[in-house]
Nucleic acid binder design. Structure first.
Length: 826
RNA sequence: GCGGCCGUAGCCCAACGGCAGGAGGCACACGGUUUAGGUCCGUGACAGUGUGAGUUCGAAUCUCACCGGCCGCACCA
């Protein structure tokens, strides 16, 4: 596609040659190494690090092209920028590939990392290559283990037995966040439940702060990500109410958001899989209950969540006592109540809750309304506001109060009686981090028959993975590490007796929950991160990555940051000050996939059009957060534009450093207007429009050379140099080549951002529209600082306007000098 | 079902409530350059802003309803 056959000896825009040439120069200059020397204000930009499965793809290309615009803009502004690169190199794809190839996962991983690193260099991303880290390296995961021990030390890591999510395909447990719609987030298999003893991080210790601290992210993170996090944390206000159940000493507490409806509680439901159900069921009902529970247990999450499903349940043979009216209400087990939300039991109020209504209708249970619906209400359960009814006893009456008042009154009453209290409930659960797979950091704990669980002393880290390969890593439902007996069997660090290592590995999201703390000092072998360096650089000024991590990774990183802050390691509580979610690259209206056969290969695109054209195409496609359809785009057009820009550099005949003052004013005005607009557009991350401005400048300069002042005019040099600097953010090779042809030394990446001259932003004259009744009837060329009165007078005198107004009387005149006059007539 | 975002030329994408000779680009047509094709230079055609109301001197922009699309949440008590 490049000009292979220059005419008349003119130099060619040879994509391959330019790329090869500048890659070498940049490798020698290493221009993007962070200085960290207080010579300039610091900026810290992180792209969500890549998983090394094969070479880079279009999705990577997009994320990094966009992030690089920001990084390179910051470099041009003179900031000391830390723009690191690393790899999220633990995880299942490497392990699965290794099993198939009968080799060690590290082998596959290393090859892919080298491939991606080469591609990144060719793709000309402005990385500080000295930061390069990978999470599967013992020099990194040693500190992931350190993080585990710190959390353990502070009571934020613990082990418990509980029903957990199990992926039958990957043969490992999953965190709640990794179950999406009942399916494994990674492989899509339907998730089942198992009862296992596993390690957890206590994310719930921070639920309110995870919520509150989002206030500072408002406006800097995409709204939808904040919404998703809020939904996930799921705060709801309500009350705990204690019910006495026959044959049980301790009352059973339920959580409700509607304590005001307590008088309408006509039955009681316990989650079928909650231990409590098993405990209270009577002998007579046990058989029926057990059968039901097994039936529920067989249902997958998918079935359980399916909408409009008939309510099922079974009577447990006992009654509970409603604490406010003494009613004896039957206790059921059902699967519409969840064992792990709230207390796993509810008071059922069919009059005000549709689910309870459905259940009551099916089982013939009484329904009592405690809120008076409006007259036109024709539904079943009434969940709206209204006066309370049927809600009084000898000591308290809610009747007549609206919902909020009733809630407050009843909560006070319950508190005074000691049978209830106001409370806040969260949906967020603790983070299950154990995994029964090989390729992750071993959990640094030793289980001793006499001492119990003993953390590995920090000075004995890392606990290095045993060398397994191929079939030895085959998932069998227990960790492959358990089979490595000579690795697993160790003396207890506390008593010296025979003991056994924990044979699970950590979720790879633990690796990525803290990596941005490691980048400032990636090779420090004395500590996970340098507290002072992190204070200087952190938190991350701009984080860039896909929205698929809206909950998972971002929630975990926020949790870890808060935990480390509380331990005194960090002086900030949020890791990422600003977040940008790039869109997706799709093709022909669909996501690219092998099965659809519509993949676009990044390497092929680069071979065909060159790196710069591919990057420009991506950046110009639309707003960064929008999906782009490759079929709608034109890398060929981008390439042509780059050639046009590049050719301009050859048309400049003035000397470098020439004073632009006195150059062609028309062109200078365009240049400075573009500088001004581009700066604002970059600040607003509106990169596509910024590129459009650069195109405008190229067009104007072309005209200036061909039919204007010509290539010797200093304004032309100024314009072309501006183009080179603007393009340096998007098309670094072309920009560098232009810069060089303009007689400058590399690198254009550090040329400095141009500043628009105010004087050149002022227009000599502006076009004023004159409207009559809001319709444009005339135009005037006027001075930009014309007064309202003068402008109105001019407008009144305009022939076309006079004609349009005819005999009508002017009722009102709107004057917005210098751009508009509107006559309202009648 | 609930909540949010978005509908502008054949296509992508712009437009502080104030000129849609659309900023920019793709594709298209015509002319010039060229041995020819492409490149290159120039010119042109194409929408009245999803639909309907409202607010306003003035609405793509604000409000409401509807249609269409995307996203999130959804048996969470």
């Amino acid at each position: 596609m490049s000009e292979q056959h220059p005419e008349g000896g003119r130099p060619a825009y040879d994509v391959e040659a330019i790329q090869t040439k500048w890659q070498q120069v940049w490798a020698d200059l290493d221009p993007f190494k962070a200085k960290d020397d207080d010579s300039a204000e610091r900026r810290y930009l992180v792209d969500m690090f890549p998983y090394p499965s094969g070479d880079l793809h279009m999705g990577n290309a997009e994320a990094w092209a966009l992030a690089d615009v920001i990084a390179r803009y910051w470099f041009q502004l003179g900031y000391d920028v830390l723009h690191p690169i690393g790899w999220d190199s633990f995880g299942l794809p490497a392990e699965n590939a290794a099993i198939k190839r009968n080799e060690h996962p590290a082998t596959w991983t290393e090859v892919n990392i080298e491939t991606q690193a080469d591609s990144f260099r060719r793709y000309a991303i402005s990385f500080d290559w000295s930061t390069r880290l990978q999470t599967s390296d013992p020099s990194y995961y040693r500190w992931t283990q350190w993080l585990f021990l710190k959390l353990y030390e502070h009571g934020l890591a613990y082990r418990k037995g509980s029903p957990v999510n199990w992926c039958p395909n990957d043969q490992t447990v999953l965190a709640n966040e990794q179950v999406v719609g009942g399916k494994c987030e990674r492989c899509g298999a339907e998730v089942t439940k198992r009862s296992l003893t596993q390690w957890y991080f206590r994310t719930t210790a921070f639920n309110q702060r995870l919520l509150d601290d989002m206030a500072a992210l408002e406006g800097h993170w995409p709204d939808r990500v904040l919404t998703m996090q809020r939904n996930w944390i799921g705060r709801s206000e309500g009350a705990h109410v204690d019910f006495v159940i026959e044959g049980r000493d301790q009352p059973v507490t339920v959580f409700t958001t509607r304590p005001d409806t307590l008088f309408g509680a006509t039955f009681f439901v316990i989650a079928a899989d909650a231990p409590l159900a098993d405990e209270v069921v009577t002998r007579a009902r046990r058989e029926a209950f057990t059968a039901y529970r097994e039936q529920v247990g067989r249902a997958t999450e998918i079935e359980r969540l399916s909408e409009g499903r008939d309510k099922t349940g079974v009577f447990l043979g006992v009654h509970a006592t409603n604490p406010v009216n003494g009613e004896h209400i039957p206790v059921y087990a059902a699967d519409y109540v969840l064992a792990d939300y709230g207390t796993g039991a509810i008071m059922a109020v069919p009059g005000q809750d549709q689910r309870d209504w459905d259940f009551a209708t099916k089982f013939g249970l009484p329904i009592v309304r405690t809120v008076q619906p409006s007259d036109d209400f024709d539904g079943e359960a009434y969940t709206g506001d209204g006066p309370a009814i049927n809600s009084s006893n000898d000591e308290v009456s809610l009747d007549g109060l609206d919902v909020d008042e009733a809630k407050a009154r009843i909560t006070d009453y319950l508190e005074s009686k000691g049978t209830g209290r106001g409370t806040v409930n969260y949906r967020l659960r603790d983070w299950l981090i154990s995994r029964q797979r090989y390729w992750g950091p071993p959990i640094p704990v030793i289980h001793c028959p006499s001492c119990g669980e003993v953390p590995v002393p920090v000075d004995r880290l890392p606990v290095v993975l045993p060398e397994l390969k191929g079939a030895e890593m085959q998932p069998r439902g227990v960790s492959p590490l358990a089979a490595a007996s000579e690795w697993a069997e160790v003396p207890c660090p506390r008593c010296g007796g025979p003991a056994k290592r924990d044979t699970d590995t950590m979720d790879t999201f633990v690796d990525s929950s803290w990596y941005y703390l490691r980048y400032p000092t990636p090779h420090d072998d004395t500590q996970p991160f340098d507290v002072e360096a992190v204070k200087r650089w952190g938190p991350v000024d701009q984080y860039v990555g896909g929205v698929e991590h809206a909950i998972l990774h971002l929630l975990y990183a926020r949790f870890v940051t808060k935990a480390l802050h509380d331990m005194g390691y960090l002086d900030f509580v949020e890791p990422f000050t600003a977040l940008m979610n790039q869109g997706e690259v799709i093709n022909q209206g669909k996501g690219m996939s092998k099965s659809l056969g519509n993949g676009v290969d990044l390497g092929e695109q680069i071979a065909k059009y060159g790196v710069d054209a591919v990057r420009l195409t991506i950046v110009f496609a639309g707003p960064p957060e929008d999906d782009m359809d490759w079929a709608d785009l034109s890398p060929g057009g981008s390439l042509r534009f780059l050639q046009r820009a590049w050719r301009l550099a050859g048309d400049v005949t003035s000397e470098p450093g020439v004073d632009p003052t006195g150059g062609d004013e028309g062109l200078r005005k365009v240049t400075h207007r573009v500088i001004h607009d581009a700066t604002q557009l970059l600040e607003g991350q509106r990169f596509n429009v910024m590129v459009a401005r650069a195109m405008e400048l190229v067009n104007a300069t072309r005209k200036g050379v061909d039919s204007g002042p010509g290539g010797a005019d200093p304004a032309v040099r100024e314009a072309v140099e501006t183009v080179a600097v603007l393009l340096s953010l998007v098309a670094p090779y072309t920009a560098e080549e232009m810069w060089s042809r303009l007689g400058h030394r590399p690198t254009v990446a550090k040329a400095g951002w141009p500043v628009a001259e105010e004087a050149l932003l002022v227009e000599d004259s502006v076009t004023c529209v004159v409207q009559v009744q809001g319709k444009v009837r005339g135009r005037l060329e006027v001075s930009p600082d014309i007064s309202d009165a003068d402008l109105e007078a001019l407008a009144r005198a305009d022939e076309a306007v006079v004609r349009a107004m005819g005999e009508a009387t002017v009722r009102k005149v709107i004057v917005r000098a210098p751009k508009l006059v509107n006559f309202v007539v009648s």
